[in-house]
Structure formats: structure tokens, C-alpha cells
Amino acid sequence: MSKVKYYYDSETLSYRKIEPKKGKRIGLSLLFILGVMVTSVLFLIIYLNIPNLETPKEKAYKRELQNMELQYELLNRKMNQVVSVLEDLEERDDKIYRVYFEANPISPEQRKAGFGGINRYNDLEGYDNSKLIISTKKKLDQLSKRIVVHSKSLDEITALAENKDALLASIPAIQPVKNDDLKRTASGYGMRMDPIYRHRKMHNGMDFSAPTGTEVYATGDAVVKEIKRTRRSGGFGNLIILDHGFGIETYYAHLSDFNVRRNQKVSRGEVIGFVGNTGKSTGPHLHYEVRRNGRPVNPIDYYYNDLTTEDYNIMLNKASQENQSLD
């Protein structure tokens, strides 16, 4: 508490209290406030310039950042483990399940394809840890896409498994003509000499020589997709196309006559037509093709209901000879 001061008034012959001037009081107050402010600023400058000194809030942010980086690292490790498991499942899918159910394998490009087009991660750029965050997000997106592709593959395999009995009955699994001694195997699948144009070209099926009128059999359960009748010199001549489902079709060309009608259901071993010499043919024979998803494949791979191992090797040797085809 400040001392109270007095002065002697000679006129009144008494002591009077000395009252401080109002302006001086305000000035002292302002001077005090200014001193406090200057002192505070000086202390703040000194505080902020102390080496390695962090505010409590900065320490909290730093701990959060370190924890985030740790969590991202753990997430990346877990994703690497998931990728390893997924790769094993994908390999089994392609080399076991899809082979067993005769489904086309899924290419690595299709499984691991990235995301093209615009930059999907531009909103994550511009931060100290952008590289880490974007890398993790990309890996997660790619993993998600691979899981979707694999899930669809499993759905397809499940559907094939449910239809396995129908698939086994539909697969072309016997020879299209009676050929117990295999002597009717005239020309196989591959590059062969064209009998008309005298140059090597791709022969997409197998030729079986047989007398006109020899019975031709459906090699698997199917529906008659097409019957084309023509005796002109070009093309397949009289032709039957069977649709076996599951992406499989068989072609029977150069026939002399038919024993089925369009859209008719036929069973393996059923007579569908007769050997002939129509179309681009140099003698009575059956030209037989197997096509999967629209592409010709080697028919010799589909005779497993009809041939012993020894017979298969004999036919394989006959069919692999680069001789002249009959069409």
C-alpha cells in the first residue's frame, strides 16, 4: 500500500493530503503496461530461440505424426502379407482350379493392372508425408482390385463346379468317326500343305479319311447351332456346327448329308451326319475342328474317352506329320 503524503497549508495553519495529478496517474499506468508488454515480448523471443525447445502443442503434434508413420508402416507390412497370401491363391486358381475346370487362366496383366487416366491422388500431395500416404493408398487400391478379380474368378469356378457333370458330358471326348485302328487319321492340326493352292497354311482341325456315307458322331452333348448346305467347291461344303456350351464348339465339314436339324439337342456318340466330299475337298473325308471361345484348338487333346495311352501316342505321331491336308 502506497504511503499517503501531506503538506502544511500556512493559510489554514493545517496539514492537507497531497492528491496525485490525474494525468500523471494515467501516464504511470501506461508506462507500467508498456513495460509488461516489452518484458513479455523479450521473454517470448528468448523462449522461442532456445535450441530444441518445443511447445506442448508441438510435442503433441510430433507424437501424433510419429504414431501415424508407425501405423502406416504396420499397415504396409500387413498388406504385404495379404499380397503374399493372395499371390498363392491366384497361382492355385490358374494352375489348379481353372485348369481342372478347363477355364482360361487370368493373365498377370489383368490381375495386377493399375489405374490409368487422371491422377487419383492429387488431393494427397503437398504434405511432408505425401509420398508415404500415396504409396500406401496405391497399394491398397491395387490390392482391392486384385481381390475383386480373384473373387469373380472364384464365382466363375463355383459356377463351373456346380455344372461339372454337364461340363464333363459336353466336352468333346471321342473321335467323330469310327477309327478303332487309327488308320483313318489323315492329317492333323498345324501347318500343312494345301492340296489346291500348293503352299503351307494353317490347318485348324483334323482330317479323317473315310468312304462317303460313313457315320459321323457328335463328340459331346450339344445343341445344333448351324447346318450349312453347299456343294460348291469353296469352303467347308456341307457343315454342322455344334454348340457344347462353356465356350466350346465343334465343326464337322464336307458332309454328304445330315441326320439332325438346327437347335436339336444331341448326345455324345449320336449320329449327326455322314462323311462326304463337298466344298473344298480332294476326296471323301471329314474335316473336324474344336473351338474354344471362338479360337481353334488341337482336337487331339480331346480324345481322352476314346484312346488308351498307347493309341494316343500313335495318333499323336500320325497327326503331327507335316503332310498334305485333304482340304
Rank of each mutant, 00 (worst) to 15 (best):
Asn80Arg: 15
Gly269Glu: 01
Glu69Cys: 03
Gly279Glu: 01
Thr39Gln: 03
Leu154Asn: 07
Gly35Val: 00
Leu13Gln: 10
Ser14Asn: 11
Asn119Val: 07
Ala159Thr: 12
Gly190Lys: 09
Ile241Gly: 01
Asp93Ser: 14
Ser151His: 12
Gly245Met: 02
Phe43Pro: 02
Ser10Lys: 14
Ala253Gln: 03
Phe101Thr: 08
Asp180Gln: 12
Ser107Asn: 10
His199Leu: 08
Leu167Trp: 10
Leu326Met: 15
Ile147Lys: 12
Pro51Gly: 07
Lys78Ser: 15
Arg231Cys: 02
Glu226His: 07
Arg111Asp: 03
Ile157Asp: 02
Gln324Phe: 04
Phe246Arg: 04
Asp311Phe: 04
Leu167Tyr: 13
Asp128Leu: 13
Gly294Tyr: 03
Ile50Glu: 03
Ile106Asp: 03
Leu167Arg: 12
Met79Arg: 15
Asp301Phe: 09
Ile227Gln: 06
Tyr304Thr: 14
Leu316His: 05
Lys183Arg: 15
Leu316Cys: 09
Leu242Thr: 05
Asp123Ile: 04
Lys145Leu: 06
Arg231Ser: 12
Leu74Pro: 00
Val271Ala: 03
Ala173Gly: 14
Arg111Met: 15
Glu73Leu: 13
Met193Ala: 03
Pro172Ala: 10
Leu124Ala: 09
Arg229Cys: 09
Tyr127Asn: 12
Asp207Trp: 06
Ala173Trp: 02
Met79Gly: 06
Arg77Gly: 14
Thr309Lys: 14
Asp94His: 09
Asn52Val: 03
Gly116Met: 00
Asp306Gly: 11
Glu162Phe: 10
Asp94Lys: 13
Ser233Ile: 04
Ser107Pro: 04
Lys152Met: 14
Leu286Ala: 02
Gly213Trp: 00
Gly116Ile: 00
Lys139Ala: 15
Asn259Ser: 12
Ile118Pro: 01
Leu286Trp: 01
Ser209Arg: 15
Glu58Cys: 04
Asn298Gln: 12
Ile171Lys: 14
Glu156Leu: 14
Arg77Ser: 14
Tyr288Arg: 05
Tyr312Arg: 06
Leu53Arg: 15
Ile18Phe: 00
Asn317Leu: 09
Gln175Cys: 07
Asn293Lys: 11
Arg92Trp: 13
Val83Gly: 05
Ser153Tyr: 04
Pro299Tyr: 07
Ala186Asn: 06
Ser187Glu: 04
Arg291Val: 04
Asp88Thr: 15
Ser29Ile: 15
Lys228Val: 12
Gln81Pro: 03
Asn298Asp: 15
Val36Phe: 04
Phe32Leu: 14
Gly279Thr: 10
Ser170Asn: 11
Tyr304Asn: 13
Arg295Gly: 11
Asp93Val: 08
Leu307Gly: 00
Leu86Ala: 04
Ala186Met: 10
Asp243Gln: 05
Gly213Met: 01
Asp301Met: 10
Ala161Asp: 11
Asn317Tyr: 06
Phe32Cys: 13
Thr230Ala: 10
Lys24Pro: 00
Asp155Arg: 13
